[in-house]
Design a protein around this nucleic acid. Structure first.
Length: 199
DNA sequence: AACTGGTCCAACCGCGACCAA
DNA sequence: GTTGGTCGCGGTTGGACCAGT
C-alpha cells in the first residue's frame, strides 16, 4: 500500500497567495532553510512541507533569476543535457540563479522542439537519420515557427542512463559515471569539458 | 467580439535515497 | 538488518495566457 501523499489531508493546494509567500519568506529569513516538514506549522502555513520547499526554491529564493534564458545559457543546457541526461538539478546547479524546474520546463517547451526540428534526437543528441534522409519532414525553424508547427514535438525524453545512483552530493556512483563517459565519448563534437565537484 | 486550439509554467505527485532509532 | 520519517528529484498535470480564425 502506497503512502498517502502529504497533500491529501485537506491542506491548501494550487497557486500561492501573496500572504502565504510573505509568511514563508519571513519565516525563512528568521530561521533559515531546512526542517521542511515542521516549517508549515511553525510558519502558520496551511501547506505541506514539500510544497513550501518547492515554492521557496523555485520562486521565492532571493537569488532566483527570472526571465528568458540567454543564448549561452541555452547552449550550456544542451551540452550538459548531452552529458548528464535528465539530471535537471545537476544542470541547474551549473546555471547560477536557475532552478531545476525552470531548466526542465525550458527544455521541454523550447530546446527539445528546437533540437527535433533541427534533426537532432534530444534523447541522445545525435543527428536523426530520418531527418537527414527526409529533411522536408523536419524543417529547420525558429522557435516561433515551431510553435505553429508542433509536428516536431514528441514525448519527453526518458532517463538515458537507466537507474543512475546518486549520492547525497549529487555526484554519481560507478554505473552512472560509466554512463556519462560513454555519452561523452559518443559526442566528441560537443567539445565540452565538464567536471562535477562539491558546491 | 467570441471561440478554439496550442503553449508555457507553477505546482503537484510518486518514488527512491538517506538517516536515525 | 529493519523500519519509519524526511528530503530531494524527475515526471506529469491543470489552468492561465496567447494567437489564429
Amino acid at each position: 500500500m502506497r503512502k498517502p501523499c502529504c497533500n491529501q489531508d485537506g491542506r491548501n493546494k494550487g497557486a500561492w497567495s501573496k500572504q502565504e509567500d510573505q509568511k514563508l519568506v519571513d519565516y525563512i529569513k528568521l530561521h533559515g532553510e531546512g526542517c521542511w516538514h515542521s516549517l508549515p506549522k511553525a510558519a502558520g502555513l496551511d501547506r505541506c512541507g514539500k510544497s513550501c520547499r518547492l515554492r521557496w526554491i523555485n520562486y521565492l529564493k532571493p537569488d532566483v533569476k527570472r526571465g528568458n534564458f540567454a543564448q549561452d545559457e541555452e547552449d550550456l543546457i544542451i551540452k550538459l543535457h548531452a552529458l548528464l541526461g535528465n539530471r535537471w538539478s545537476l544542470i541547474a546547479g551549473r546555471l547560477p540563479g536557475r532552478t531545476d524546474n525552470e531548466v526542465k520546463n525550458y527544455w521541454n517547451s523550447h530546446i527539445r522542439k528546437k533540437l527535433i526540428c533541427e534533426g537532432i534526437d534530444p534523447n541522445n543528441h545525435k543527428l536523426c537519420h530520418h531527418h537527414l534522409s527526409h529533411p522536408q519532414m523536419f524543417p529547420i525553424t525558429n522557435s516561433s515557427e515551431s510553435k505553429k508547427n508542433d509536428s516536431c514535438s514528441s514525448k519527453p525524453p526518458s532517463k538515458p542512463c537507466g537507474n543512475n545512483a546518486r549520492d547525497i552530493n549529487g555526484k554519481y556512483e560507478n554505473g552512472a559515471i560509466t554512463c556519462v563517459e560513454e555519452e561523452t565519448s559518443s559526442m566528441l563534437d560537443l567539445n565540452l569539458k565538464l567536471t562535477i565537484h562539491m558546491p
